[in-house]
């Protein structure tokens, strides 16, 4: 039976009726049309579906929608404010951190969370923060460099 839940997504309150077995990833993509959240495995292994739940990165394919009743979610669509890219996105674009882009939304959200907590992370700290996000294309180096560059930009 469907249950009515209320939550805040990208700073906007919404109310949706969801089946108890539906995941946050499904609801975001199918009910709310937020297709930037990607599904690479559906099992919590790849991090492509990363969103921020009350500010913390989670694999949205593993969280049931009913569990986020009353909570706040930020997806990739909420990261830039309309025209301007977030420094992390900007750095990803400029630094060649994106190839196929399927891991990118999750990477950006993980990186952004790191930089909000730690404004000058070391390389091991960056690598640790991104270790739950798989990327098959880049070999990670340009992603790590981009995060470092974003940290610089955010300090200014």
């Amino acid at each position: 039976m469907k249950r009515l839940i209320t939550l805040v997504v990208n700073k906007k309150a919404c109310e949706i009726a969801v089946e108890p077995n539906r995941t946050v990833a499904q609801v975001l993509r199918e009910d709310l049309g937020l297709l930037g959240t990607k599904i690479g495995c559906g099992m919590g292994d790849c991090g492509a579906c990363t969103v921020l739940l009350d500010g913390r990165p989670v694999n949205s394919c593993l969280v049931l929608a009913v569990q986020v009743n009353g909570r706040e979610i930020e997806t990739i669509e909420g990261v830039s404010n309309g025209k301007d890219l977030h420094p992390v996105q900007k750095a990803f674009v400029e630094h060649g951190a994106i190839q196929c882009g399927f891991c990118t939304p999750g990477m950006v959200l993980s990186a952004k969370t790191l930089l909000e907590k730690n404004s000058s992370p070391s390389e091991p700290e960056i690598r640790k923060a991104l270790s739950g996000n798989l990327c098959r294309c880049t070999g990670y180096q340009k992603i790590v460099e981009a995060v470092r560059q974003a940290a610089e930009m955010m300090k200014k």
Partner: peptide, 21 residues
């Protein structure tokens, strides 16, 4: 040169559409 990719912005913002989208 090192020009950024033509699709980088769409991919960084989640606007890029893949088949399952």
């Amino acid at each position: 040169t090192r020009l950024p990719r033509v699709d980088a912005r769409a991919k960084a913002t989640g606007a890029a559409r893949y088949t399952d989208d």
